[in-house]
Design a binder for these strands. Structure first.
Lengths: 253, 253
DNA sequence: CAATAAATGTTAGAAAAATCACATTGCATG
DNA sequence: CATGCAATGTGATTTTTCTAACATTTATTG
């Protein structure tokens, strides 16, 4: 990559910084070079930008990441999350205020909210906010703060208070580890405070986890299993160890 | 559009609710129909989804929108904003904490932040947050609250206090109307509080407006012109009426 | 200022995607 | 159960995008 090429690339990057696409032909006109040169620039950009059907997009734009690939085993993994969320959605009632946790597990749930007339979603995750912002029937409350790239979430000292001030009917939580004795945990410590505040203030607490999380222990502990009213997972047998004891209702989806 | 078609469409919409794309062939496999049927479904979806180079994307996602079209006069409009932001960027110093206002005017500025080592961006706009979240050298603080679709911003009673607690070096404000006597205004009342808080607490206040806004008066007044230290616009002559009086420095870009 | 290398432009051909026309299937109705 | 209609599938055609090869221009260096 040479100097002028880098300059063009920077120009295009600025143009696309707010999201969106430009057609190859327009990018070429904008930079005053041929389409082939733009192609070569992009090829040399080391993955910062890519083409999608003749249009130029920032590669890190979450909108353009392929979500689904039948050839990979990831496909069935997605299907599992879809099933889990189908089960989770059956708990939602018209007019609910929902807390939606971060991660990818609960993303399919958001698409299912279109079936309701009036729902309010409370979240501290950017990807969740983006998905919900497009739904006309869903009110969105985003809990702001300092952005953490690793989890696409915001964190703030005052977030716990902010959550407690909201009237949350149902809190849908995700986790990276669920252990019968060692409780429920995630990877990042900055997620603990909002999760605990949601658990503390919601009328109903639902944990949605796929099978791969069962038995795992992750660095950031945030709740006991018995703190939840419902656990939605694929294999209810794996969690049915403490029969009879007071604990969450285990639902297989 | 018939019942089964709507069902397939809903299925695909759920799949893409979290952003991302699927290839036509995978969408077809997922729904158990031919690629042609998916094409027909999408064509009948009334613009909810579109194809981008053989891949299916949600069209209503704020991150997706062709930003640039040379054939429209919008193109030159974009170029103007780019020039304005180039001028605005020259005020930024290494290590600054910047308040970035909502709207599209300041979007090109965000791409220019890649030149710095360490910048903090404070905003209450979702589109700004999305653009900044991809920049590795920029810390992002998003001011949360209830989401307003019309301006892609969040609003909250406590936002003013949150802004005043932050140490903002430079506040970059946009506006929909700038009038010598009637001051600076925007369309939406929920934007007034954060704008005023930013003006009140920032060390330097910069107004960035293209020529089309000069002379206009909009419903929501939020500041006098003299509240700003710098006004960056295309035509400095139009604002130079009150020479000699105490007022902002007018910069043509 | 020639010689060389790098960058860019032009064209042709291959691959992929979009469109179209028509065949086939499945469903509802008399 | 035959009939008609809507939905879907299939293959041919057109258009667009991608790639590669070679020509031309621009910069660099001794």
């Amino acid at each position: 990559m040479n100097g002028r090429s880098a300059k063009r690339l920077a120009r295009l990057q600025e143009t696309l910084s707010g999201g969106g696409t430009i057609h190859l032909s327009e990018a070429a006109k904008l930079c005053g070079v041929s389409e082939m040169t733009i192609r070569r620039d992009v090829a040399a950009s080391n993955g910062a930008m890519t083409f999608l059907g003749g249009r130029l997009v920032m590669a890190d734009n979450p909108l353009f990441a392929p979500v689904y690939d039948l050839d990979e085993q990831q496909g069935s993994h997605y299907l599992a999350k879809h099933r889990l969320c189908k089960g989770a959605a059956s708990f939602i009632a018209e007019g609910d205020t929902l807390f939606i946790d971060c991660g990818t597990t609960l993303m399919p749930l958001l698409g299912m909210l279109g079936d309701f007339q009036s729902i309010t979603v409370v979240t501290y995750a950017l990807n969740v906010a983006n998905a919900v912002s497009g739904l006309p029937n869903v009110r969105l409350v985003l809990l702001g703060g300092l952005y953490h790239d690793v989890s696409q979430t915001f964190a703030d000292d005052a977030m716990g208070d902010a959550i407690r001030r909201l009237g949350i009917n149902r809190a849908f939580l995700s986790a990276a580890g669920v252990h019968a004795e060692r409780g429920v945990s995630c990877f990042h410590f900055h997620e603990v405070a909002p999760k605990q505040a949601a658990i503390a203030s919601a009328a109903q607490r639902l944990l949605v986890v796929d099978e791969s999380k069962l038995g795992a222990i992750r660095p950031a502990y945030f709740a006991r299993l018995s703190d939840f009213d419902v656990v939605i997972t694929e294999n209810d047998a794996k969690l049915a160890s403490a029969e009879g004891e007071p604990g969450p209702r285990i639902v297989a989806a």
